[in-house]
Write a protein that binds this DNA or RNA. Structure first.
Lengths: 187, 187
DNA sequence: TCCAAACCCTTGGATATCCAAGTATATTTG
DNA sequence: CAAATATACTTGGATATCCAAGGGTTTGGA
């Protein structure tokens, strides 16, 4: 579609690079309109959202050949680390930080693909357990290898920036109520 | 719904804080499985995605009383800074970094709400211009006041961290091909 | 004990995003 | 100048997310 673009900028079907950073322009606009005090937070949050979009698209591109989306991959990865490869759906919802309906949706599709199986909880009839099938475990392992190699190994962030991001987001998420434990002091 | 939760952790219908950080646990799992070299990038990217989700939900909560979503708000804000309050749809697509179909979708709804109007481009018949209505301009201004006060003014990041995030994401996005200009050297 | 409240999962509805493909218009090229 | 290519927007299809509401199960207080 694009004359250039795909070879150089493989993130989606968007056009060539813009001559200016649109988020920096938005920041300047905020400052000009008298909102100096929030111009930088606005820019940081907007840039975060755009960065998330780019990274998500990279992951989806890698996972597509496996027939997986990032949401489904996250579910498989979570299960692959669970004791007995089994997890209650409400537990998955809490750990993945998504709505229960999103878990239902993902499990429906994964089950349809033969990658997970639903089981009844032995004592609590309300609860449904999810377990990886052998096929699901193998696919998760293969997909992880590719994600590691194609997305995480060359993330676009320096090692130093990665440590910084982990620190900043960890603090943010704790204050937002995601979790309550204290982090182990960095060595 | 939750016994506790909403007053203290207003981000969605998720349950109480977890005792442990699930992303840190994932990082430990990666390390245990021999992927030490990508465990930190994985954790940083996963945390970024979760942080984006939290911030997006905060923005949506603030915008809901205005009948706006974040995507529609971004379109209104962009138009409010455009020369003559008018912008070609393909330009909006480039500046907002979303697919043309997403712009069509947003403009359909904004037009239905009387907030923007489509106009024909004077010379290029392929192109459609979008313009704010008076109502749209007023709503954008009011929504911005609330977003500034309720999301950006107390973002959950320190001033220092905000500067750091802007720097890291700016570099990342430039290298990802979002834009090509050099940043003005920080004063 | 027993009934209201809480919890677990699912269904249905709304929105946003992307991709593929189609229509119309402009530009480029032979 | 005409044909091929590129661009602009829309439509249709797929997926993910959330919320609201409903049915079944468990828990806890009167």
């Amino acid at each position: 579609m694009d004359k250039l673009g795909h070879e150089f900028y493989p993130e989606g079907t968007l056009s060539q690079p813009l001559p200016r950073d649109p988020i920096l322009e938005a920041q300047r606009n905020w400052e000009r309109h008298g909102w100096q005090d929030v111009a930088e937070p606005m820019a940081a949050i907007t840039a975060l959202m755009r960065t998330q979009q780019i990274l998500l698209q990279r992951a989806e591109t890698v996972l597509k050949p496996f027939g997986l989306t990032f949401a489904r991959y996250e579910m498989l990865a979570l299960l692959s680390f669970a004791r007995d490869g089994e997890l209650a759906m409400n537990r998955a919802s809490a750990l993945l930080q998504v709505h229960a309906t999103s878990v239902t949706n993902a499990v429906d599709r994964l089950e349809g693909a033969g990658l997970v199986a639903r089981t009844k909880h032995p004592t609590d009839k309300r609860t449904t357990l999810i377990a990886l099938t052998r096929q699901g475990r193998e696919l998760a392992a293969a997909a992880t290898v590719e994600l590691n190699a194609q997305v995480f190994a060359d993330s676009g962030f320096s090692d130093r920036d990665i440590s910084t991001l982990i620190r900043i987001f960890s603090k943010f998420r704790r204050e937002a109520g995601d979790f309550s434990a204290d982090e182990p002091a960095p060595k």
